[in-house]
């Protein structure tokens, strides 16, 4: 920005008769800076002042690595489960008519509205060895509560609406004529779904996946009850941050948080690239 505002080519904002630009933008920026930007840069500043040796000692710690693996691994699995079932639920809601459809549709948002701690104790009670579902799985030799599988169950609950709510509006917009055209040209229903419908839905499915995944990586409240929280086995990264904080080990807590932020950022970048690619590929 080397030019003066008065100069013609560059303008900070388009002229408008509507008042209040300075006030609202000023207030918004000040509030954003105070609440979000300063605290977050405090975290970055803290982790940057650790020094490489200390940072790598924390990052290379077996417990940290395992916690990160568990967080990202279970979140990935749960998001994959949600892609399959979330897309199916969206399809049923958009294409089929049945009594109580609106109630089912509203229910999908339950994980957004139900506090995570409530979801956590409810799922743990259901999947505990003597719980309603745990009892049924016990004879099959499947243990859910207090294992990494329990983490996946909690994250499936948390992530479901992200997939359904991103895919659903795109499904509603699908032009039925495209399917009819494919059918008249002799395509089978399976071919229409995989070759005609899926390509159009792919970007939305990828977005839903990444939203569910990102939410799952950071999730804390619903997971800590069902996970069992065994170090190296079922301890998630956000919990390890809390444990380090309770030990007053601020550097470790900060470093783990910084790694999580960096990994999430890389993830979002990859998803954006995949999305651009899929838009180009499927037009």
């Amino acid at each position: 920005m080397t030019t003066a505002p008065a100069q013609a080519g560059w303008r900070f904002r388009q002229p408008s008769v509507i008042p209040g630009f300075g006030l609202t933008l000023g207030f918004s920026l000040a509030y954003l800076t105070l609440i979000i930007l300063i605290p977050l840069s405090g975290l970055i500043w803290r982790s940057a002042s650790l020094g490489w040796a200390d940072f790598w000692a924390i990052a290379g710690d077996r417990r940290t690595i395992n916690a990160l693996e568990i967080s990202f691994g279970t979140a990935f699995l749960a998001a994959a489960v949600n892609v399959v079932f979330g897309t199916l639920v969206a399809w049923v809601l958009v294409r089929y008519r049945f009594p109580g459809r609106r109630i089912v549709d509203a229910m999908v948002d339950l994980p957004f509205a139900l506090p995570t701690a409530v979801a956590g104790i409810a799922l743990t009670t259901l999947y505990a060895p003597n719980g309603w579902i745990g009892k049924l799985l016990m004879p099959l030799g499947i243990k859910v509560a207090y294992t990494p599988l329990g983490i996946v169950v909690a994250l499936v609950f948390i992530g479901l609406p992200f997939v359904v709510r991103t895919v659903q509006p795109i499904m509603e917009e699908i032009d039925k004529e495209v399917e009819e055209a494919a059918a008249t040209l002799g395509a089978s229903r399976f071919q229409i779904i995989t070759r005609v419908l899926f390509p159009g839905l792919a970007p939305a499915i990828i977005t839903g996946f990444s939203l569910a995944f990102a939410r799952g990586v950071g999730e804390y409240g619903s997971v800590i009850f069902i996970a069992g929280n065994l170090p190296y086995k079922s301890e998630i990264a956000p919990l390890l941050i809390v444990i380090r904080l309770e030990e007053y080990n601020y550097p470790a807590a900060t470093a783990i948080a910084a790694i999580m932020l960096a990994l999430s950022f890389v993830m979002l970048l990859v998803v954006n690239l995949v999305q651009t690619w899929s838009r180009k590929r499927y037009g």
Binding site: L40, Y220, P238, A253, L261, S264
Partner: peptide
Amino acid sequence: SVSPVISGL
């Protein structure tokens, strides 16, 4: 896109 735990941290 920030973990709630980090928001508190």
